[in-house]
Structure formats: C-alpha cells, structure tokens
Simulated scan of single mutants.
Amino acid sequence: MELVLLTGVSGFIAKHVALKLLNAGYSVRGTLRRMDRADEVRAALAPYLTEHAGELSFVQADLESDAGWAEAFQGVAALVHTASPFPGAQPKDPAQVIRPAVEGTERVLKAAAAAGVTRVVLTSSTVAVLNEAKPDTLQDEADWCDTHLPTTTPYARSKTLAERAAWEIAKTRGLRLTTINPGLVFGPPLDGHYGTSLALVERILKGRDPMMPLVGQPVVDVRDVAEMHLRALERPETIGRRYIAASGSMAFVDMGRTLKAAYPTRRIPTREAPQVLVRLLALFDPSIRTILPKLGHLERVSNARAVKEMGMEFIAPKAALLAAADWLVKHGRIRA
C-alpha cells in the first residue's frame, strides 16, 4: 500500500490521523522533531491497530530546518501536513507563532514538490475561515480570516497565512492540495499528550473559573477530523477544495452546563460572566486575553460541503465534549 508522510505525528490530531491511515492499509512515515517520542506514538496507537494495519515508521525533521526533509520524502506517495504551533496563550511576539507556521508549511510543501510528491492534505483551521468583520453570521469555505484586522490573533494569522501560502505553492508547483479546517477539537485523545483544546475541557472540569465568558466557537470531534483527512486523501474530487470540519457551535457557558449535568458533584461554572469582568480578568490571565476579540459572539460555520461531498456524519458537539471529559476523568487527569 502507498506510503504517506505525516508531519507532526506526535500531535493530538495527528495520532488519530495516523491511526485512520494505518487501519485503512496505508504505510505511515511520521515526522518528529525528537526521535525519543517514537515509542510514545507507537504505544498510543498499538491498542487500536487492526491486524491489516500498514507499517509505521519515523523520521526526524523540524519545520524550522531544511535538514531531513529530502530524505523524509523518499518513496512517499502523498503528504499529510498536520504540524503547526498551537499556543495556549498568544505570545508577546506574534512572529513566534506566525513564522514557524508559515515558513514550515512553505518548507514542507516545497520539499514535497522537489521530491515529485504532488498529493497533499493540509490541516488548517476554522480560524483561517472566520472573518471577524462578519460576526454572528454563518461562514463557509469561501470566507477567509482578515489578517489585517487589529483584533486578529497571532494564531489566526499564522493558520491563515500558512494556508494561503500552501494554496499559492500548490498553484505554482502543481500540487494537488486539499485543506481540512477544524474547529475547536474535542473527543478522546489516544494518550496523555493532548495539547491546548482538551486543556480547555480540563480547565472547566477543574472549576478554575467561577463563571464562563460569553463566547462560542465551532466544535468537532477529533475522530471526525481524522476521518476527513482519510476521505480527502482517497477522493480525487476533493483536490483544490477546502473542507470545514465542525459539527456545530457551542458557547462556553453551554459547555459548562453540559459538563455540570454529566458531573453534578463537580464545581463546574454554569453562569455567564459579565463582559466587563472578563476584560478585567484578561489583564492578569493571558489565556483569557486570547478570547477578548470574540467576546459576545457565537462563531458559526457551515459543514455542508463536508456532508455533501465527503458523506460525513458528524459526532454532535456535546458528544465530542463529553467524550473528551470522560477520557480526562477516567484517566485521572481530573481529581475526583
């Protein structure tokens, strides 16, 4: 079966993508910045692999260095590029996020083109879709984040500029590109390395905040995101198109109420915080500062293209949230 190069294989989404690809019979070569994480990835995937799974191997390569990429692409039929920095709080220097995301995407896609690998599936984000100049409107793949708005976060800029760079390289180098644009990714991780999105669920379960800000975002289950990468790879008709991965939107206060209903003995916030209080707290908490531009808005995107063209049947937002919470509780990440 074909060999797929999967960048950033140790990531939360990437591990699920690797599992989908392997169980579909593909061989997967995962890139790692540090080879000492190879055993971690193998251990995470092992319980879920079928007897017909493809072979898993690893290669050392870093988004910020040219070293190793030419070797990584040897014998590869397709690239799935998931690696990109995802900060819990926006950095003081936006370039810390933007530069590695954009330059890393350029480096990897140009290396693919140089190696004659033309089929590419790229993990982007709904932040590259959502235009803050159109708050509370249903947005779709025709929409793009406006990177020139002063309220656009460095993370949103990084994903938008990286995706635009990918489309430009695809155009000039003849790459057959598909992008997957996930919302806030919940669902169960395959191991304890789950990053920023599940850290939000952890924060709510721990009752760290007495109230919830009036903010809402598109939500998706990680298993659906992985399935969309597989379907994109296997369906030539997806080439040249973006696909939003989202099952609906949830306000943070609804996340709190959903989790409180599931875990009634836990001190979980269910009240909506006054906006003036959120702005005050943001002065002291960088992770709260991140959401200020979105305060008072429910961001909404359409998944119609993924449903129609990929045949996706999405896991509901509440089910994705509860699956994440259930994993965190069962694996001792939250004290009883």
Rank of each mutant, 00 (worst) to 15 (best):
M1I: 10
L5Q: 10
F12R: 05
F12P: 03
I13A: 05
I13P: 13
K15C: 02
A18H: 10
A18T: 03
N23S: 04
Y26E: 04
G30N: 12
G30Q: 12
T31M: 14
R33M: 04
R33W: 03
R34D: 15
A44L: 05
A46Y: 02
A46G: 07
P47A: 05
L49Y: 10
T50Y: 06
H52Y: 03
H52F: 01
D62S: 04
L63T: 04
V76S: 05
A78G: 06
V80H: 12
A89T: 03
V97N: 03
P100V: 04
A101C: 10
A101N: 10
E103H: 10
T105Y: 01
A113C: 02
A114S: 12
T118K: 15
S124M: 08
S124D: 09
S125L: 09
A128S: 15
L130S: 03
P135F: 09
D136F: 03
Q139E: 02
A142T: 14
L149I: 07
P154Q: 11
A156Y: 13
A165F: 01
W167H: 01
W167L: 00
E168T: 09
T172R: 09
T178A: 05
I180P: 08
L184M: 15
V185D: 11
F186G: 04
F186H: 13
T196N: 13
L200R: 11
L200P: 05
E202K: 15
I204L: 12
L205E: 12
K206L: 12
D209R: 09
P210W: 15
P218Y: 12
D224H: 03
M228F: 00
L230Q: 06
R231H: 00
L233I: 07
A245R: 09
A246H: 00
A246R: 00
S247H: 09
G256L: 00
A262K: 09
A262V: 06
T265M: 04
R266A: 00
I268D: 08
P269V: 00
T270P: 05
A273N: 09
A273V: 06
Q275I: 07
V278E: 08
L281R: 02
F284E: 03
D285P: 02
I288K: 12
P293G: 10
L298A: 04
L298T: 10
E299C: 01
R300L: 02
A304I: 03
E309T: 01
E313C: 02
E313A: 14
I315K: 00
A320G: 08
L321D: 11
A323T: 08
A324Q: 14
A324S: 15
D326S: 14
R333Q: 15
A336Q: 14
